[in-house]
Design a protein around this nucleic acid. Structure first.
Length: 838
RNA sequence: GCCGGAGUGGCGGAAUAGGCAGACGCAAGGGACUUAAAAUCCCUCGCGCUUAGGCGCGUGCCGGUUCGAUUCCGGCCUCCGGCACCA
């Protein structure tokens, strides 16, 4: 075992030694038979890009601290690691470097596993999960077929987001400001036949059960809530004027404005538009308008800044309440994908309708008057608020809008003119990708039998390796005849395989379940083990997954529960979203050229220093500003602790009795102070770490070190001979080492061994403090006159209020400040402050 | 536009059931040790004035509640994030 301070603090040697020890002794292997309460600590698994970056260091340092802390606090830990190993970069590498994606990926995994090893992370590597291996992705296929059987996976032709650079489809969640989330290319719209997962079936539950996620950051829940976008309203049928048996159905969230309708608008791509214009004078004009809108880029045409335009269709509808003739328009601002694709336009009370009506000179009818009764036509903008009173609204006149909503809904439903309805903004999740390096979608197209799933017993559908990677043209799997050709499982006639692969977010939507039994062969996971470990107690990852991964994982968890494999309906009990690593005012990234290489840091300062710095520099959920000097500060701290424990630790005492309050009760005040400080530090570090305030926990450790170092420095030789002092000081140092160990685990082990204990420090119990000794013996009392500080004095803790008052009033500075003004009142805050009001 | 979050020294950040603003660290300045440098150790460190005892100001801005406000309330400003023609 290396001597931790023979030649100064030598992190390299210490760390290599203890990493070897942990590996050899399987220190972090999950104990399946433990009676302790379970704790599942999970960090989002990385994409194996080849090298770890500071963002990885940060998230894994946080996760590892929590795992080690919770282990010492008496929990049985599941703390696994794996690889989100499918994805486009592997394919790009194949095109550029002519390396097969599998080879490239597995090489990267090996390199990154070694890097994580050098950080000393406490994973059970026996549970490693790699999504690109058949023993994992076969269960993607299995889950897909189960979803297909339940109608949760279905095919539809539709307009999809297409990234021309990645040459693949993107989910709505993967389009950021009209750009590809991965490569920032402009996304275009394309019509394709695609596989979708029916996440919308779970919209309501995703919304309502989010309320139970009290361990999640509020803002993540809010983002998901907005993304799901529930709105309740009313559908109303408007019969056509020339075909009274047919009608157009609109959706509105403002039924109170139903009497203010002056026209209807239908989306240009709506299938009902063509029969509407057939044979009308306007037919040709409308057709060319439809063509024009089709040509437009969707992300541009749906932007708010585009001017509203539209056209009269020549057709009229009949208002179901007033029986007036209402002209029907088609307009670019009406979305086909939301609601019924047809809206009722109320220009007086909707800004978009107002702009349209103003532009085309359409009538505006005021049906809600504001509180001040000050609205008069013509309006300068729509009155959209919901406080006021209904006017010109037939039998509903005089009601306030809220009451009117209810009354009109009731009336419409009773008369059979429509029904109340809820719509969601959330769309189904398109998972087809025209790429190679992903899970093959296990479907077969047969001319006789149609779309047939691969029988479960034939899984996995393996990715073929006879693919030329040109980087051009069609889906790579189309170029593998051996893959495409298959016999129909039903009729045995020649058929053709689906050549699209799955979105890699499919892989990561359930990997946390695979960890509970990663070698299971009969099921995606062992339901008994899942029942034992799930839900994940603490999940840690970046805020960038607030919607994408976290929503998909919640959806999968509900589907898997409905398949009867688990009882849980939410996967992650507590969520910590850590901030980014920033340097020179920008997120660290290769493209910005501001990266700090973790390998270099570990070589230069050691893993412990790197970890302590990243935990100390900022609270976990905030961005961390990189500072080279800050790393040196962390290094200095660990060096000092190492030096002190190595050089100053008193010899072990023969007494077996642990150091408790009774031991120090008659000791010198200095010895008592050390004991008090030890108790106080245990309390502080425990509480701060529980609250995930790692930066202040480390501050507490630093203060403890500073205190001990001064104590030792100020002690005379005779005092150092005192046996109680030695016992208490040794106990303090032992506690310091134990408390520091989850933050700087290698140093913890080294010093623990130096103190004469057997490894591993990671397996010992977290210290408990004595509450009677966490408070200081004396307190400093602040004296204010009229809220301004005049003086301070030291008093024994718990001194009587009257005594405090007397002491304060007899202070010369206070007497001067009061002068001969009469005292009105004296506020005394126990053991803290006295405020004399004159 | 709508919905969130945040504004504290030169910097990262502490402190809020209302009670000493700036813990801890970094940087900076001074000193000790050293032939010298690095490392290490000690001291100073919000701003302004000062007769060296103090005095005034200070947590984005303006107001309010209070003996007392970084903390609570009202109104603004700025920055960051999410959504965005969702009817």
């Amino acid at each position: 075992m290396p001597n931790p301070f023979e030649n100064g603090y030598q992190p390299k040697e210490i760390e290599a030694h203890w990493q070897g020890y942990w590996k050899e002794h399987q220190t972090f292997r999950v104990n399946e038979n433990s009676e302790k309460p379970k704790y599942y600590c999970l960090e989002m698994f990385p994409y194996p890009s080849g090298r770890i970056h500071m963002g990885h260091v940060r998230v894994y340092a946080i996760g590892d601290l929590i795992a080690r802390f919770k282990t010492m606090r008496g929990f049985a830990l599941l703390h696994p690691m794996g690889w989100d190993a499918f994805g486009l970069p592997a394919e790009n590498a194949a095109i550029k470097q002519k390396v097969p994606p599998a080879e490239w990926t597995l090489k990267n995994i090996a390199a990154m596993r070694a890097q994580l090893g050098k950080l000393g992370l406490s994973y059970d590597w026996d549970r490693e999960v790699t999504t690109c291996l058949p023993d994992y992705y076969r269960w993607n296929q299995w889950l897909f077929i189960k979803m297909f059987e339940r109608g949760l996976a279905y095919q539809k032709e539709g307009t999809v987001n297409w990234c021309p650079s990645c040459e693949t489809v993107l989910a709505n969640e993967q389009v950021i400001d009209g750009e590809c989330w991965r490569c920032s290319s402009q996304v275009v719209q394309k019509r394709l036949n695609q596989w979708f997962l029916k996440i919308t079936d779970y919209a309501e539950e995703l919304l309502s059960s989010a309320e139970t996620l009290t361990g999640w950051p509020e803002r993540v829940l809010l983002m998901q809530k907005n993304w799901i976008g529930k709105s309740s309203g009313l559908e109303v049928h408007f019969p056509l004027d020339d075909r009274p048996n047919e009608s157009l159905t609109i959706f509105t969230t403002r039924p109170d404005t139903l009497l203010g309708v002056t026209f209807l608008c239908i989306a240009p791509e709506h299938p009902l538009l063509l029969p509407l214009i057939a044979g009308k004078d306007q037919e040709n004009a409308v057709l060319s308008f439809i063509e024009k809108i089709k040509q437009q880029d969707k992300t541009v045409s749906t932007s708010l800044t585009v001017e509203k335009e539209g056209l009269f269709t020549g057709a009229y509808a009949i208002h179901p309440l007033t029986h007036e003739k209402i002209p029907i328009f088609t307009a670019n601002f009406v979305l086909m994908e939301y609601g019924t694709g047809i809206i009722m336009a109320v220009p007086a009370h909707d800004q978009r309708d107002f702009e349209f009506a103003t532009k085309y000179n359409l009538p505006i009818r005021l049906v809600i008057q504001n509180k001040a009764q000050s609205l008069v036509l013509p309006l300068s903008e729509a009155f959209v608020e919901s406080d006021g009173v209904l006017v010109s609204s037939n039998i509903f006149t005089g009601l306030d809008p809220d009451a009117a909503k209810k009354a009109i809904c009731r009336y419409v439903e009773k008369e059979g003119l429509g029904q109340e309805k809820i719509y969601y903004r959330l769309r189904d999740w398109g998972i087809s990708r025209q790429r190679y390096w992903g899970t093959p979608i296990p479907m077969i197209y047969c001319e006789t039998c149609g779309v047939v799933p691969v029988p479960l017993s034939n899984l996995p559908v393996l990715l073929p390796s006879d693919i030329p990677f040109s980087g051009k043209g069609v889906s790579p799997l189309l170029q593998s005849p051996s893959f495409i050709k298959v016999d129909c499982p039903k009729c045995q006639k020649p058929a053709r395989r689906e050549t699209d692969t799955m979105d890699t977010f499919f892989d990561s939507s359930w990997y946390f379940l695979r960890y509970v039994s990663p070698h299971e062969t009969g099921n995606p996971f062992d339901p008994n083990q899942a029942a034992k470990w799930l839900p994940v107690t603490q999940y840690i990852g970046g805020i960038e997954h607030a919607i994408l991964h976290l929503l998909y994982a919640r959806f999968f968890t509900k589907v898997i529960a409905d398949l009867g494999l688990t009882q849980i309906r939410e996967p992650f009990l507590n969520l910590l979203t850590q901030g980014m690593v920033i340097k020179d005012n920008a997120k660290m990234s290769k493209s910005k050229g501001n990266v700090v290489d973790p390998d270099h840091l570990i070589n230069e300062y050691g893993a412990d220093t790197t970890r302590v710095f990243s935990l100390f520099a900022a609270p976990p959920e905030k961005d961390l500003v990189w500072s080279d000097e800050g790393v040196q500060g962390a290094s200095r701290f660990l060096t000092r602790v190492c030096k002190m424990v190595y050089e100053q630790v008193p010899p072990a005492c023969s007494s077996q009795e642990p150091v408790r309050g009774e031991v120090v009760i008659n000791a010198s005040s200095g010895t008592k102070a050390i004991y008090r400080m030890t108790q106080r530090t245990i309390k502080r570090v425990t509480e701060d770490t529980e609250k995930f305030c790692f930066n202040t926990a480390i501050s507490g450790l630093m203060e403890f070190y500073n205190f001990l170092s001064h104590e030792i420095g100020n002690r005379s030789v005779e005092e150092k001979d005192d046996l109680t002092y030695q016992r208490v000081l040794r106990d303090a140092m032992e506690k310091l080492v134990v408390l520091i160990s989850p933050f700087a685990p290698h140093l913890g082990e080294a010093l623990w061994a130096h103190l004469g204990h057997l490894p591993s420090i990671s397996q010992i119990s977290w210290p408990v403090y004595d509450p009677a000794w966490t408070e200081s013996e004396t307190v400093e009392v602040v004296v204010q006159v009229n809220g301004k500080i005049k003086t301070k004095f030291i008093e024994a803790a718990g001194t009587d209020e009257e005594v405090l008052k007397k002491t304060a009033l007899s202070d010369p500075k206070v007497i001067t400040a009061i002068g001969n003004l009469p005292i009105k009142k004296i506020f005394v805050i126990k053991s803290q402050l006295i405020n004399i009001v004159v």
